[in-house]
């Protein structure tokens, strides 16, 4: 499903070079649920962004479904992100100018041949799947943190991507809300065979996943 080979990532600013990732080799199988752990600044987010095609590695190869995406154009990368990948962020990243259901519809806007009524239907179904039935016409600011993260997950899964990437999805939530979000992710993994890669700080949440990848200073330590 996901294959990383010799991934390097170096950030170059005017004078400083920061090595964020060194020689990462990782294969994630279809339907797996893995977590990435490590101290702050160890390169977890960078790795997730490389997998999600939001960031281009300085070296190495990325393949999704055996397709070498490293050389894809902006337009093709956008299409792969749209069809194959869903993102969930620590700080939700909902658009505050749009209502809950409009936020969830966003990935479908960039897909051809979906009518607006169909979009609306799929968005409501996705919200249903994450357990958010009411308040779909509210704006994100009117919801609690846990509810906002549910909206963000609904947005990530509305287009039925095979891969879900979550960067500290419970990091901004209290432990009870965090558990609820974990349940949603696990449910998606078990019921719909979605591949989930989750970055987390929290060993308790990491325990619930099938495999833990540990990073230290940009290196893979287990």
């Amino acid at each position: 499903m996901i294959q990383l080979e010799g991934i390097e990532k170096v950030y170059r600013t005017e004078r400083i070079e920061t090595v964020a990732l060194t020689n990462i080799n990782l294969t994630v199988g279809e339907g797996e649920f893995i977590s990435i752990m490590g101290p702050s600044g160890s390169g977890k987010s960078t790795l997730l962004n490389v997998i999600g095609l939001l960031d281009v590695p300085t070296g190495g190869k990325v393949a999704l479904n055996s397709k070498p995406v490293t050389s894809y154009s902006d337009r093709n990368l956008a299409r792969v992100r749209n069809e194959e990948i869903g993102f969930v962020f620590q700080t939700f990243h909902l658009i505050h100018d749009l209502s809950v259901v409009d936020n969830v519809e966003i990935p479908l806007l960039y897909r051809k041949g979906i009518s607006s009524s169909e979009r609306r239907k799929l968005a409501l179904r996705a919200l249903d799947r994450v357990g958010l039935h009411a308040r779909v016409h509210h704006f994100p600011g009117q919801l609690s943190g846990g509810q906002q993260q549910r909206v963000a997950i609904a947005r990530a899964i509305v287009g039925n991507p095979r891969i879900l990437l979550a960067d500290e999805p419970t990091g901004n939530l209290d432990s009870q809300m965090g558990d609820e979000i974990m349940d949603v992710l696990k449910g998606l993994n078990e019921n719909e065979k979605t591949t989930v890669v989750m970055v987390t700080h929290d060993p308790r949440q990491a325990e619930k996943t099938e495999r833990v990848v540990r990073l230290f200073d940009g290196r893979q330590v287990s």
Binding site: G52, R75, R79, R81, H93, P107
Partner: peptide
């Protein structure tokens, strides 16, 4: 900017 990041993450190309 945040909105642009989100839209890109969910499949908008630069030209879109």
């Amino acid at each position: 900017a945040g909105e642009i990041g989100v839209r890109k993450a969910f499949g908008a190309s630069s030209w879109t």
